[in-house]
Simulated scan of single mutants.
Amino acid sequence: MEWGTLVATLGGGLIALAGTVMADRLRTRQEHRRGLQARRRDVYREFIAAAGAAHTELRCLAQNGPPASALFRASRAAYGRAAESPADREDAAGPFGPVYCMAGDEYQR
Score class of each variant (00 low, 15 high):
L36M: 06
R39W: 00
R39K: 08
R40Y: 01
R41T: 01
R41S: 07
D42E: 04
D42R: 01
R45Y: 09
R45W: 07
R45I: 04
R45L: 05
E46Y: 12
I48E: 09
A49P: 06
A50W: 15
A50R: 10
A50N: 07
A50F: 08
A51D: 05
A51L: 00
A51W: 02
A51Q: 04
G52C: 05
G52M: 10
G52S: 05
A54I: 10
H55A: 03
T56D: 09
T56Y: 14
E57P: 08
E57Y: 14
E57H: 15
E57S: 12
E57L: 15
L58I: 05
L58A: 08
R59P: 04
R59Q: 14
R59S: 04
C60S: 06
L61G: 05
L61F: 02
L61D: 08
L61P: 08
A62T: 03
Q63C: 01
N64D: 01
N64P: 03
G65P: 02
P66Q: 00
P66G: 02
P67T: 05
P67E: 01
A68E: 12
A68C: 03
S69C: 03
S69K: 05
A70T: 07
F72K: 13
R73I: 01
R73C: 00
A74L: 02
S75L: 05
R76C: 07
R76N: 12
R76P: 10
R76W: 10
R76Q: 09
R76K: 10
A77F: 10
A78H: 02
A78C: 00
Y79P: 03
Y79G: 12
Y79R: 08
Y79T: 08
Y79A: 05
G80D: 09
G80L: 14
R81M: 11
R81N: 14
R81G: 15
R81D: 11
A82M: 08
A83H: 09
A83R: 09
E84Y: 06
E84I: 15
S85N: 09
P86I: 12
P86G: 11
P86H: 15
P86N: 13
A87S: 09
A87Y: 15
A87D: 14
A87M: 06
D88T: 06
R89M: 09
R89G: 13
R89N: 10
E90S: 12
E90I: 15
D91W: 11
